[in-house]
Structures are given as C-alpha cells and as structure tokens.
C-alpha cells in the first residue's frame, strides 16, 4: 500500500480593504515569486500584478477584506483572488486597464480566468516563466 504525500496547505493573505493591502500583498508575492525561481523581469511582473490587484480588488470583494491564496510552482506563481461579488472578477480585470498601455493583468498573466463558486467569484491569475529555445 502506498500513501500519497500530504499536500501542503496553501499560503493565504487576508487584509482588511485599505492601505495595508498593497504593502502586504506585494511583499508576499515578491518573496514567493523569487522562491519559485521566476527571473527578475517576471518577478517584477508578479509584483506589478499584485499592486494592481491590491488597488482594484477592494471595490469588488464581497466583504471588507481582500483575500488572496498563493501557490508557487516550478517557475510559476498562481494567485486566487476572492471571494468577489457577482461580476467582480471581470470588473477587476477591466479596472486593471491603463490608458495607453492596455490591460496590464491580461498582458502579463499566462492564465487568467474567473470562476464562480458558492461563496462568490474568484479570479485566478497565473504567471510563469518558460525558457524558450532559439
């Protein structure tokens, strides 16, 4: 009989919507992105996405807190933001548009999905780095 290795509990950050969301989230994302061995430019991208989520998510959460679950993988970092109110996932993405630049989260994320769940909507963002061969 073989036993499956136990899955590690995810990293979760929960901050009352307010001025602490940005400083806290960017630090956690930065450290986990570095540990996931993302190269510097992708680490920068991850922190930028974290800053945008911190700035825009408070308007779309169901309660008074911004909750983010983080899962570092091999050269990747996945974020799960929520619960968000109905339509909040799409609205958060739209809010991340910067005039003249476009939608920053859409441009930087390798995967970007919104999924409805019992407690509300969740925005899934995944940033990865895959080395390309010429």
């Amino acid at each position: 009989m073989t036993t499956e290795p136990q899955r590690e509990p995810p990293t979760r950050v929960s901050v009352v919507a307010g001025p602490l969301v940005g400083p806290v989230l960017r630090r956690v994302v930065g450290m986990l992105a570095a540990r996931a061995d993302l190269p510097l430019d992708r680490l920068d991208d991850a922190v930028l996405v974290a800053d945008l989520i911190a700035a825009r998510a408070p308007a779309h959460v169901t309660g008074d807190r911004v909750d983010v679950a983080l899962e570092p993988g091999p050269r990747s970092l996945a974020l799960r933001v929520g619960p968000l109110r109905a339509g909040g996932g799409e609205a958060l993405i739209v809010d991340a548009a910067v005039p003249g630049v476009g939608n920053v989260i859409e441009q930087l994320a390798d995967e970007l999905t919104v999924s409805p769940e019992d407690s509300g909507e969740f925005l899934h963002v995944r940033l990865a780095y895959a080395a390309t061969t010429a």
Binding site: P9, T11, L20, V24
Partner: peptide, 10 residues
Amino acid sequence: RASDVRLTLP
C-alpha cells in the same frame, strides 16, 4: 477589525 492582517502559511 479595521486594519488587521492575516497570513496563513505552510
């Protein structure tokens, strides 16, 4: 609470 931070980590 107005300004608490919760972190759950392995």
